[in-house]
Simulated scan of single mutants.
Amino acid sequence: MSDTTTDLRVALDPEPASTPSSVPSPRRAEEGRGTTPVAVLARRTPVARAVGRGLTVALKRVIAVVAFLALWQVAPQAGWVEPAFLPPFTTVIQALGRLISDGTLWTDIVASLHRSLTGFVVANAIAIPLGLLIAWYRTAADVLSPLLTVFLNTAAVALIPVFTLILGIGDFSKIAMITYACFWVVLFNTISGARNVDPLLVKSARSLGLSQLSLFRKVVLPAAVPTIFTGVRLSGAASMMVLITTEFVGAKAGLGYLIISAQNNFQIPEMYAGILTISVIGVGFNFLLLLLERRFSRWRP
């Protein structure tokens, strides 16, 4: 009797044999979570995340440049400025194409880079070792500091007549002028970087028994590299600035000569093409120096 009652109860009120379809299984829920945008981003490899961050940074940097070029294009066409004095960006690009096609631009670029790079290399080759030497010997730094400050604060452009009178108007005087302008920037940054090394690092290295040469090579020089390269990059910008100024006088080739000649002949698009070329070369040169800095300061985070 009891068995019959039990069978009837089970038949009338059976227990669910499976999980209701309204409640997803753990596996299905996990699969559902894996298809959300957040989960997709989370599953990206480190390389993909790094590429995504790089593209985001590049996009942010390009926005300002694109906006500037768009304003340059629109302002003359809309009549905001006189097109004869500021032609549209596309007109300047056309002039740049003409200069490239007839070979004029390449001749001027080669002449300018020869002068600029020669002065830049000579200045750095002398200033960096001399700055480290002065910083290492405090007495020399104290004695020479007033004289060095005077030279640093004497504008290099103001000395162009002096260099022209003494060295003439040829390439040698231009290279010497660029060397002078770059030298003091690198020298002061080198002295500052070597003298401002963390004293705790120096004391720790000396407590380990390092010799003076090892201390300088393994502690002082690596710690001074970022400041030194700041001076190197500033000297790169100074070399281009002084180069253009020196080529305004007595030059027969070069980007500065191209700019002043186009301005005198009222070839305004060609003038802006020369200015644009200088900007591109300066940005590329600075980028190469940044790569070199990262190569020599890989210990930095």
Results as ranks from 00 to 15, higher is better:
1 M>Y: 08
5 T>I: 12
11 A>R: 15
12 L>C: 02
14 P>E: 08
14 P>M: 02
15 E>P: 06
18 S>R: 15
23 V>Q: 07
28 R>N: 03
35 T>G: 11
35 T>E: 14
47 V>T: 13
51 V>Y: 03
52 G>M: 01
53 R>A: 15
55 L>I: 07
56 T>Y: 09
56 T>A: 15
65 V>M: 12
66 V>T: 14
68 F>G: 05
68 F>V: 14
70 A>S: 04
70 A>Y: 04
71 L>K: 00
73 Q>W: 03
75 A>Y: 10
77 Q>H: 05
80 W>G: 00
87 P>Q: 08
90 T>F: 01
93 I>C: 05
98 R>Y: 07
99 L>H: 04
99 L>A: 01
100 I>H: 10
102 D>L: 11
111 A>M: 07
118 T>L: 15
121 V>D: 06
125 A>K: 01
125 A>N: 02
125 A>I: 09
135 A>K: 06
137 Y>Q: 14
137 Y>N: 11
140 A>T: 12
143 V>A: 04
145 S>W: 00
149 T>G: 15
152 L>A: 01
155 A>Y: 00
157 V>S: 15
163 F>I: 12
165 L>G: 14
165 L>F: 13
166 I>L: 08
166 I>V: 15
178 I>F: 10
178 I>D: 08
181 A>R: 05
184 W>N: 01
185 V>C: 02
188 F>H: 05
189 N>V: 03
190 T>H: 09
193 G>V: 09
200 L>V: 12
207 S>L: 14
212 Q>T: 11
212 Q>M: 00
219 V>N: 02
224 A>F: 03
230 T>W: 00
233 R>T: 08
235 S>Q: 11
242 V>H: 09
243 L>V: 12
246 T>Q: 06
251 A>K: 06
252 K>I: 12
257 Y>F: 13
262 A>Y: 03
265 N>H: 05
265 N>Q: 11
268 I>Y: 01
276 L>I: 06
277 T>N: 05
278 I>S: 09
280 V>A: 12
283 V>C: 07
284 G>S: 03
285 F>S: 02
286 N>D: 15
287 F>W: 12
293 E>F: 03
295 R>K: 13
299 W>L: 04
300 R>N: 07
